[in-house]
Design a protein around this nucleic acid. Structure first.
Lengths: 192, 192
DNA sequence: TCGATTGTCTAGCGGTGCTAGGGTCACGTC
DNA sequence: GACGTGACCCTAGCACCGCTAGACAATCGA
């Protein structure tokens, strides 16, 4: 049995290596540069090995997305617990969200812009994704205001953050006023 | 001279045909299906003809984006002028924006999600793009509220709409509550 | 020690965006 | 009206993509 366990450990390790390498390559040169050939070369295996771990490139993106969701949830919670008061918490949350998107563009794309084959907004949505949304909900639910469903409010706030993150990075919004945009958003949306 | 003029007319007509065909194909089957081979086949010319009009696929996407921007600007203005009062105008604007994105997903992607090689938020930004933003600004500037720069407010509102449009279509947000999300957004952001 | 199983690799399929080079056709000129 | 010329378009092919069939080697259990 021990032999089999060792093999499973090695397989799991190689799978982590694939995900980490894909993520690193994507952050370095963008997802377009993450080809199965390049990825295989970097992990020093042949292409078909990738397909013994993942159904295809899409699933690799999905794996990176899940990893990123867990990190983002942690980052959001860390930012909000450090702040005092709901209002400051929301501002910190928004900043942390946009910082994460800016610091990890490829991971952010894997999560929210690319097709990683993951189900969203359903009961079979993977746990890390649900938890990332839960992290948003924890802070935002407190400033939804009376008579407004916390989940709905969170969706709207999240959409606004997502819009800011993607439009800014794509050069659709000038980056200078990013801070003022966040302030305005929190001012208007959050009910203290 | 007449011969040359006729040739230029024909060239311009063929260019319009390329853009219209690319757009149609993209709306039918998505941008992934818009390959240079398929596009060439549909316009009944060989691939290299495409490259005598556009530098590459990116520029074709850009051409579709410009066409879409003009249409969106018109749609937004039509929706707002039909409404009475700034508040109703903003609601109509938001609905029109999201309706346009839903009805023309491929065009919307060409404008805001894909790389069409167009400069945004700069002085050399093409006129249709500037005008689409101007159409947003005309309505939204009136509800920015005191002390808030209309342009900045428009950027934030636009980002929120963009987030709603993209996340909903990507299945990240359940489509049922779309209407309530718009109401909440307008309620909170717009200062009547 | 030997057969079976597991694992990995080489090679190749049909597709992509893009381009070099040759050939054809229509044009302006004599 | 015939002709040399130039603009135009197509065939063929490049290097790359995601993905997979089948050969081969290494390891395991009996």
């Amino acid at each position: 049995m021990s032999v089999q366990e060792r093999k499973e450990r090695e397989r799991a390790g190689r799978e982590r290596l694939i995900v980490a390498t894909a993520r690193g390559l994507a952050e370095e040169q963008g997802w377009d540069a993450v080809t199965t050939r390049r990825l295989a070369e970097r992990i020093e295996y042949s292409q078909p090995v990738l397909y013994s771990h993942f159904r295809g490139k899409r699933e690799i993106i999905g794996a990176v997305a899940l990893e990123g969701a867990a990190e983002m949830a942690a980052a959001l919670r860390a930012a909000t617990t450090a702040a005092d008061g709901p209002r400051a918490g929301v501002t910190a949350l928004a900043r942390a969200y946009l910082d994460f998107a800016e610091a990890n563009p490829a991971v952010y794309d894997a999560m929210f812009r690319l097709d990683g084959g993951l189900p969203f907004a359903q009961e079979d949505t993977p746990e890390p994704l649900k938890d990332a949304f839960a992290a948003l909900l924890e802070s935002l639910g407190r400033v939804a205001g009376g008579g407004v469903h916390p989940g709905l409010f969170t969706e709207v706030f999240w959409a606004a953050l997502h819009g800011l993150a993607t439009l800014t990075r794509a050069g659709r919004l000038p980056p200078e006023d990013a801070g003022r945009r966040v302030e305005l958003l929190v001012d208007r949306l959050a009910v203290v």
